[in-house]
């Protein structure tokens, strides 16, 4: 055997060996990449699910927010509308009261107001204030309340009386304006009920 043929044999052997090694390595790499791919597929799927899940949660949140705010917005608009209408009713009522006839019934009302005021103050020793329109009605009624006198000053109100003890320490405001203000929450409810809101 010549040295050339021996050399050729060795080269062939090395080539075969390298080929085998390369093939094995390729096979291993292929297996490894297959495994990595299948693994990453799994984690990819998990990541995909997570993103979808978060997106779902976020969209639910946004949906809730939108529904919540629009519900509230429409309710609030309704409240403002009702309030506007209630105010209109009030204005009309006030207009009617201020232009009402000062008849016998009105005189009875003033008498009741005086009665209520003096009993709240616990004395009839009082000064009575009223508006210029009602002066003529109040004055004759004061004879029933001994010690009471009508002030020469007038007050700006729709009607009724304001009663002050003579020492100035106590006042009872029984004008129609004050009574309306006190009763406003109840009247508002009554009006709103007429609009079909509340009980």
């Amino acid at each position: 055997m010549t040295s050339d043929s021996r050399l050729e044999k060795t080269v062939d052997k090395i080539l075969n060996q390298t080929e085998n090694e390369l093939l094995t390595s390729l096979k291993n790499s292929f297996e490894e990449s297959k495994e990595t791919l299948s693994k990453s597929l799994n984690s990819l799927e998990q990541e995909y699910d997570r993103i979808i899940d978060e997106g779902k949660k976020e969209s639910e949140k946004i949906e809730k927010k939108i529904i919540g705010s629009s519900d509230l917005e429409s309710r609030n608009k309704q409240l403002l509308l009702v309030e506007e209408s209630v105010e209109k009713v009030f204005d009309k009522a006030i207009e009617k009261i201020s232009s009402a006839n000062r008849n016998e019934n009105y005189s009875k009302l003033i008498n009741n107001l005086l009665d209520e005021s003096t009993s709240a103050l616990g004395t009839t020793d009082v000064i009575v204030y009223t508006n210029s329109k009602d002066k003529g009605i109040v004055e004759p009624l004061l004879s029933k309340f001994s010690g009471s006198e009508l002030s020469s000053e007038t007050i700006d109100c729709l009607g009724g009386v304001q009663v002050k003890s003579k020492d100035g320490s106590m006042t009872f405001n029984n004008t129609i304006d004050a009574r309306l203000e006190r009763m406003k929450p109840l009247i508002r409810k009554e009006i709103a009920t007429k609009f079909g809101i509340g009980n």
């Binding site: 709240a120 103050l121 100035g168 320490s169 106590m170 006042t171 009872f172 405001n173 009574r179 006190r182």
Partner: peptide
């Protein structure tokens, strides 16, 4: 809620 209003006292 009552319809009866209150007395106003001015002696502080």
């Amino acid at each position: 809620m009552t319809t009866q209003g209150g007395v106003q006292y001015s002696k502080i």
